[in-house]
Nucleic acid binder design. Sequence first.
DNA 1: GTGGTCTAGACCACC
DNA 2: GTGGTCTAGACCACG
Lengths: 123, 123, 123, 123
Amino acid sequence: MLEIDPRSPVAINDQIKAGLKGLVAKGLLKPGDQAPSVRSLAVTLRVNPNTVARAFRELGQEGFLESRRGEGAYISDKGSRQAKDGFSDLKRALEEALKMARRGGLPWNEIESILRKARGDER
Amino acid sequence: MLEIDPRSPVAINDQIKAGLKGLVAKGLLKPGDQAPSVRSLAVTLRVNPNTVARAFRELGQEGFLESRRGEGAYISDKGSRQAKDGFSDLKRALEEALKMARRGGLPWNEIESILRKARGDER
Amino acid sequence: MLEIDPRSPVAINDQIKAGLKGLVAKGLLKPGDQAPSVRSLAVTLRVNPNTVARAFRELGQEGFLESRRGEGAYISDKGSRQAKDGFSDLKRALEEALKMARRGGLPWNEIESILRKARGDER
Amino acid sequence: MLEIDPRSPVAINDQIKAGLKGLVAKGLLKPGDQAPSVRSLAVTLRVNPNTVARAFRELGQEGFLESRRGEGAYISDKGSRQAKDGFSDLKRALEEALKMARRGGLPWNEIESILRKARGDER
DNA sequence: GTGGTCTAGACCACC
DNA sequence: GTGGTCTAGACCACG
């Protein structure tokens, strides 16, 4: 359901944040639904609970999650809007990568080939 | 000629390295040409000279630059091949960004729109 | 009669405790009166019965409530004194908030404006 | 310059955040200025560096600080506006405390007495 | 069981 | 020296 790549240069907690938002964007999780618990995620992702907790806290500050002590965390009503509407972090990251690639001289046809490959891998 | 974004999450020395390789890949700099001096780059890019020096040192270790004491640094013959051949760092970075974007639920049409926009901005 | 804010950072059971003491302090409930039942409170406040029960248990330990098995809970004679006398928790909380506000640079006139607004809202 | 109360129920990292914003709001720190380093703060406040780092990270996400790797953190241009303009966290916290105090039956004259006392203590 | 916080100690990359 | 991240383990309070 949620995948993490511990080798990725992207910080694990950021992967978790993006992953949760992704579940909402894809409709697998809806506003009002309970998010998986910090501890359960920590176990299934084989990650330190603190790392998951950090992601949850930050999502809470962003207004994407509403955490209730002793009860769990819930996707906030704002959640779905934010997740689909914005994508701002993801977009900026992609734009960054593209900008660097172009500055480094990576030609467009190579870039498109990478896109096609990624698209193919998904199926 | 060379652009750096100090706010980018990408390390400055990596931006410099990619930028120099890019100049070669684009044909603006050829094997045997003298690379800009560490000092001048530091000034024009408004960057710590240590950072530029580090980039040059690492490029030297890769065999992309040849530094001659008291004279400056030159693009090595291996340089151009390496620059175009490799791109491996840039490619991996792009693939990473794509993977994250997809996990975060960013739809393909958004991705393509970003691509088109980036392409348009270049002209 | 009793209001709770589930989103407040203040623990729900603390809100219930303060609320009951408040009813006494305001004279709406007097020593010897029967307190609302745990169940009814849980329903009207839309709160977990465990949480209400916990508040009652703690109020019992403080001597503010007297629980009679199978009958319900009553405001103890000590109750009213305690409620008015003490206020110690509330006072400390307010002092804390003030201290933080000042350390954070919130100017006194803003603080007074908040006071006035709160006072106006009550009427 | 910056004070922390380890016994306060307010989380230490939140105290640090409010404190830094306060320094800006009070004019002791201005946009562009370098903030004290994570490690130095950790030492002087007798707090774990991780706790300070957390505060810095969150301030960075809010756009109040700009952290540059290996260089330090700087008050962003948005910083001063945010700090003075908003105060939203502090205000909400105060309003919360007031609401609780009133629900708990703390009379207005007591509240005003606390205000006066706090004001006097500052001098 | 739930989330939240703090400490401690270790790495990493960068300047 | 700087900030950033992760792990590990311990508490706390709430439901």
